[in-house]
Design a protein around this nucleic acid. Structure first.
Lengths: 347, 347
DNA sequence: CTGAAAGCGCTTACAG
DNA sequence: CTGAAAGCGCTTACAG
């Protein structure tokens, strides 16, 4: 065996920082947690030590003392894979920062829904996060309320007063997109609706219709197509819309998957995008940047919503444990109009 | 204020289990961790208590004692959003189970690559995971080797002897898909190659060509199209392939994004899938189930690969800390041929 | 095979 | 404003 330089790498702890700065661990802890009750001079010494030693707090240690070990369940029923992935990313990130354990259960029909819920409760979850479309299941919400389990509904279009929720303002988002199309100069705009069983779908449609009407451009029925939030339905809807005479110069699909379907139809008809046809979507899922040209869409900050969902359940769990009561929080996150290459002024 | 039943929910700890089973916490711990040195009777008592109380170990507590607090960096440069999401999902899941902290850095060009690496090292990471295409960057690998930082390369097509890796066997996967197409009865099959700068691309192409040749069906140059793993390149390649006479009855795209592009072209030409044209992909990213008809493809277990990557860095980090040395592990995960609706016998 | 003691890294009371 | 003590939940040595 060749001789080997043995670098005994040990993680830098708060004790190392305290020693290096010549203070007690408590003072170091206060500085690191932005507690104001620390003399400015000590604060600076500690901060310098943190930088110099490259200290990063050990989240396991922190959460062990702080979070009191909560367990959160996520109960979902086949939303789009991309959406769920991104949501889970946010949930996991935030939960590991808080020492929260996450249990995931998938359910299909009504029976498996009860069974899945049962499994989560059996495993002793202290709270539950409901992604769409389960966030709108009256049955699930009722059952959880009876058991007094804290819940957070994610991306519902119809928040229930007693149930905490995180969402964007779908109405305003769709309104912003409609305005954008109008500003580009489009007048004859087709719209593909979402699955009527999903609550945000109605809001997006209403926003489009009302914004157009306000602009003095009431939408003829022939430019309003039905859809189900699926690629396939986007394919069908766009085929129908693009057969209208005169052809619409833009199609606003109420989600990205349908916009992908619409683009496929346009490519097939040999229509240049955005030169001859503008196509826009909603959600900004990964497919939006997969397509060519990349999709102009309304970004829903899904992973940030996952993080927020963890914070909201945690808050409720803490409340419950301490016997406090309080109002359900409804957090509305900011959407973003993301301008990419699939939208331009009509040719 | 209305009176409120105060349910002081406290998490079940291993102490509760031990008390309930009438043993010491150590014995409970041994049973829970499958340590064989426990009398069968005690084992059963503890297991019963675990079930009855719904005990789930607190990972923060465990990792604090066990894992010794490792920190792992993930350095990526724009792979597909869907791919990275799924990989991160696996990485985060496994790291929270091990009390590992994860830091993520994105880089674009060469300069930002060094800067991003610098930031990770500055933050004191003990190991680094490299998703594609950075897993094949000779420069990055060299730099990390010099600093003796443990590395795991994810999904490389050209594993380097000294660098640990997790991957699938791209060659065998593409071979299995080619065989599947042959078994369905296809003879005239078009192939869309991936980005030549990504190492798995070459393996997939070679597997296709060699499997066809073995079947006595050497592939004419006109059926081999270039691609870059993007939707756009799939669009262009399929347009080209479908103009050949006679038309191929199937197109094998070396990833799903390009297959999505190929489908768009087929829809446009009014070709029924799979009746008049079979389209298949590779990877099984979320787009595969977004499309219609849903895509037959080769599943790469991306999130499991993320988990494995964490295990592999951790093993190396432990080794290094204990001054042990050892061989770099190359883990090859199982691919799966996923048969959906986009492939059938030629019409 | 079983258990009492100690400690992983951090922060919450409590005392000054 | 600062710090000594204790403990979050778990498991690693160590002793029997």
């Amino acid at each position: 065996m060749a001789p080997r330089k043995r670098t005994t790498t040990r993680a830098v702890t708060i004790l190392d920082v305290a020693r290096h700065a010549g203070v007690s661990p408590m003072t170091a802890s206060r500085v690191i947690n932005d507690n104001p009750r620390v003399a400015p001079e000590l604060r600076e010494r500690v901060q310098a030590s943190v930088r110099e030693l490259g200290y990063r707090p050990n989240l396991a240690g922190r959460s062990l003392r702080t979070a009191g070990t909560a367990r959160v369940g996520v109960l979902y029923s086949n939303p789009s894979a991309a959406y769920l992935n991104e949501l889970m990313l946010g949930i996991l990130e935030q939960s590991s920062a808080n020492g929260v354990q996450v249990l995931v259960e998938k359910c299909g029909g009504i029976h498996s829904q009860r069974a899945a819920l049962q499994r989560l409760l059996q495993a002793g979850v202290d709270g539950i996060i409901l992604p769409p479309p389960l966030c709108d299941s009256a049955q699930t919400l009722r059952e959880l309320e009876q058991r007094r389990i804290p819940v957070v509904a994610v991306a519902t279009g119809a928040p229930v007063p007693g149930v905490a929720s995180v969402r964007i303002d779908d109405y305003q988002g769709a309104r912003a997109m409609t305005r954008h199309l109008l500003e580009l100069g489009h007048r004859r705009i087709g719209f593909v609706q979402g699955d009527p069983k999903h609550t945000p779908a109605g809001l997006r449609t209403a926003a489009f219709l009302e914004t157009m009407a306000e602009a003095g451009l009431p939408v003829p029925a022939e430019l309003l197509a039905e859809g189900l939030f699926t690629y396939r339905s986007g394919l069908a809807a766009a085929t129908q819309l693009l057969a209208r005479q005169p052809r619409p110069t833009a199609i606003f699909c109420s989600n990205d998957d349908m916009a992908a379907g619409a683009m496929a139809v346009a490519h097939g008809l040999g229509l240049r995008i955005p030169g001859e046809l503008t196509v826009v979507g909603f959600d900004d899922t990964p497919v939006a940047t997969t397509l060519w040209p990349q999709l102009t869409t309304v970004r829903q900050p899904v992973s940030a919503m996952g993080k927020a969902a963890i914070e909201l359940v945690l808050e409720q769990i803490r409340r419950q444990r301490e016997g406090r009561s309080g109002e359900a929080v409804h957090q509305v996150m900011k959407y973003t109009l993301v301008k990419r290459d699939s939208a331009a002024a009509p040719g």
